[in-house]
């Protein structure tokens, strides 16, 4: 066992882990943050996407010990527990961008990262290309694409509102 210290959703965390522990196992099994899912466990499906130091990564393919000092954001940290949903979460709800919901946390974390890299005006083609690493087995993607386009626009308004305050 070895110790690792990192920040998860803004809170400092220190954990004792076996060297084989994956980030997703640390999140789910030790920190009980079960919003991050394990779909394929082979870096294909994207159900486990979280942000590490501001970038979307697949938490099934990174060891907890690689994250000493890192800043991790999961779906639980996207919006305050007692506040309104993040604009991207709200857009998924508004546009019915899910059916069973299993892929949704990964979709949303990928979508927020997409906005960071590609901006607020996302066309369908860009969104579909960017979703290459996120697999949904229910929706046929149509409403997910709609939700991400709407969420990206809403995030701009969110940013303007925050700047105005």
């Amino acid at each position: 066992m070895a110790a690792v210290s990192l920040t998860v959703n803004g809170k400092p965390v220190t954990a004792d882990v076996d060297s084989r522990t994956l980030l997703v196992q640390l999140l789910r099994e030790q920190l009980r943050l079960t919003g991050t899912h394990v779909g394929c466990d082979t870096s294909q499906c994207g159900a486990c996407v979280v942000h590490v130091n501001g970038r979307a990564v697949k938490s099934c393919t990174i060891l907890a010990l690689q994250l000493e000092g890192a800043n991790v954001l999961t779906i639980e940290g996207l919006a305050p527990a007692d506040g309104p949903l993040h604009p991207m979460q709200e857009a998924f709800r508004e546009n019915h961008g899910l059916q069973c919901g299993y892929c949704t946390p990964g979709m949303i974390m990928t979508a927020v990262d997409m906005v960071r890299r590609k901006g607020h005006d996302l066309d369908d083609h860009t969104i579909r290309e960017e979703l290459e690493g996120n697999i949904c087995r229910c929706t046929g993607y149509h409403n997910i694409v709609k939700a991400i386009a709407a969420g990206a626009r809403a995030m701009r308004h969110g940013a303007t509102a925050a700047a105005a305050e």
């Binding site: 590490v52 979307a56 990262d113 996120n134």
Partner: peptide, 9 residues
């Protein structure tokens, strides 16, 4: 190469 999350690593 891969997908956006893979390209981050």
């Amino acid at each position: 190469i891969g997908d956006p999350a893979v390209r981050h690593m």
